[in-house]
Amino acid sequence: MSVLHVTSPHVHRPFTMNALMRHVIYATIPGLIVLTVLFGWGTLINVIFASIVAIAAEAIVLKLRNRPTSFSIKDGSAILTAVLLALAIPPTAPWWLTIIGIVFAIVIAKQLYGGLGSNPFNPAMIGYVLLLISFPLEMTTWVPAYTTEGITSVPTFAQSFAMIFGSVDRDIIDGITMATPLDTFKTYAGNDLTKLQSASVLQGNIAGVGWEWVNVAFLIGGIYLIARKIITWHIPVAVLSGVFLFAGIFHTLDPDSYASPIFHLLSGGTMLGAFFIATDPVTAATSNKGKLIYGALIGVLIYVIRAWGGYPDAVAFAVLLLNLCAPTIEYYTQPRAYGHKKANSGIAK
């Protein structure tokens, strides 16, 4: 008989962190497929390349920190960070961009804070924001989506590979790229109504060309996550409601200057942010009430920054700002414990 002393409970749900991360990665597949179909192989190449870089960076830092390397890499968190960052950056993003973003995300945003579970900010978004403010040009130009008027083909695998690994002159890439719908809207809204109405990129079936399908794909992935109970509905619903509500109010007041709520929901990184980024458990609030407040504030901030901020998309900024608030939200949204008349709040008596 074993002398192993184990206290209760003796049984565990056969569901590990590794599986959790794996399911989140699975859930990004629809979005990845749509991105690849519409914008060429760039995103897929970036995802794979970023994952390799992330594992390497994680392994090196873990070694430096004297932590068990393979044990920690197996949890899959580094790969998930890489996948999310690669999905957020343009398919034409050059290799060094990916490396800088991933290394910063893994080394500085995650490991220097103590590794998995101890990082106050979402590492993928820290990497993204670093790239966005350092290299605004590379980060905001995308190849036109397949469905855009006059575009009959997307870059082939070889073309995408060449664009990413630098054997194509940057000027040529810049020549074929164009602004995203959000960017275009931001440029023309409120000052050039005719251009706003005629911009081809804004003439999609539901929202901006191409992006509508990307967002729908991420929405499907997100629903899978909720169905698998990887995440709860609170954060995504709160984020989307926040965006929808604010966009709705301002669009009703002034349709020419403010885009419709549907456009906001299905443009840029809204769905990716709502289901995959904001729900990162490490940096989000954990009580259900807290999640609702956290999500709603992200939604509002996304809209505020998109409408009046300096950058066309705002998911990363909104998430990072709310990451900062998550502990405070947590302390004031504790659930009422059994046998207590009132819920606790604050951190200690």
């Binding site: 192993l4 184990v6 565990h12 590990t16 962190m17 959790l20 044990f71 949890d75 968190s77 590794g115 998995l116 579970g117 101890s118 709860t232 458990p281 490490v282 989000a284 954990t286 009580s287 259900n288 947590e330 504790q334 659930p335 009422r336 414990a337 059994y338 046998g339």
Partner: peptide, 24 residues
Amino acid sequence: PEPDAEQACIRCGSCTQVCPAGLL
């Protein structure tokens, strides 16, 4: 089976969801 090695808490909140006493 014997319990697996303890990993870092990622504050996933699963425990909050199942706690019958309403704790965190």
